[in-house]
């Protein structure tokens, strides 16, 4: 029997499954993701055929809609199914490149709605308005007093963010977001409601 993998976030059982609310948020924590870090990482990932953002705090999408985020000169966060990379990696084949268990270290929350920057301004001190924080930009900063990675992305055709933050505090963060989005008629939705266009790949076991 496959063991059960469990998000740290308790999502209401029927979170607003009808039409998309003006501001919507879904728990993507069970969706695949991966990280690599170390001085040899950029070289090794490029050798695996990935095209990488040239500078830290930028992200790009590949042709499969997977998101490749560069967090520093030698650290990358890969949102989507990169299982092939995982099996290609070893200490011997990837010198100075080390995998990070991002699937389990970080919760992944996706926010969609044009009021998303305004909502984030209640919990985050970085200017995330679209004309100052373009699609693909990354801010590694403090959100509701937690360290978090914020990535700008259009989600379901609207402004949106990927929010990655320590998994142990993810319920707290979820609750903060629920509270912050109330004044914008925001609500949690099921994962599928936001997954359609943002990440096409199938749900995978970590």
């Amino acid at each position: 029997m496959q063991p059960r993998r469990q998000s740290f976030i308790a999502v209401p059982t029927d979170p607003c499954s009808g039409s998309l609310p003006a501001l919507a948020m879904a728990d993507f924590s069970l969706r695949p993701r991966l990280g690599f870090k170390g001085a040899g990482t950029a070289d090794w990932l490029a050798a695996q055929g990935l095209s990488l953002p040239p500078e830290p705090n930028q992200s790009v999408k590949d042709d499969q809609g997977r998101l490749i985020a560069r967090l520093s000169w030698g650290e990358f966060l890969l949102l989507g199914d990169f299982a092939a990379l995982q099996s290609a990696w070893s200490f011997e084949t990837a010198p100075l490149c080390f995998p990070l268990p991002r699937l389990h270290s970080h919760a992944w929350i996706v926010i969609s709605g044009d009021a998303a920057p305004k909502m984030m301004a209640k919990i985050c001190g970085v200017d995330l308005r679209a004309h100052k924080f373009a699609q693909g930009r990354i801010a590694q900063t403090s959100v509701a007093r937690l360290n978090a990675i914020v990535i700008a992305d259009r989600i379901r055709g609207r402004l949106g963010f990927h929010l990655l933050s320590d998994i142990s505090t993810s319920q707290y963060l979820w609750d903060c977001l629920c509270d912050a989005m109330l004044e914008f008629d925001g609500a949690p939705v099921v994962l599928e409601a936001l997954a359609k266009e943002s990440h096409g790949q199938t749900d995978a076991q970590g």
């Binding site: 063991p3 059960r4 993998r5 469990q6 924590s29 389990h104 998994i167």
Partner: peptide, 12 residues
Amino acid sequence: VPAQYGEALWDA
């Protein structure tokens, strides 16, 4: 174990 399997490990 990876964190998202913590509850499964505990139960087992």
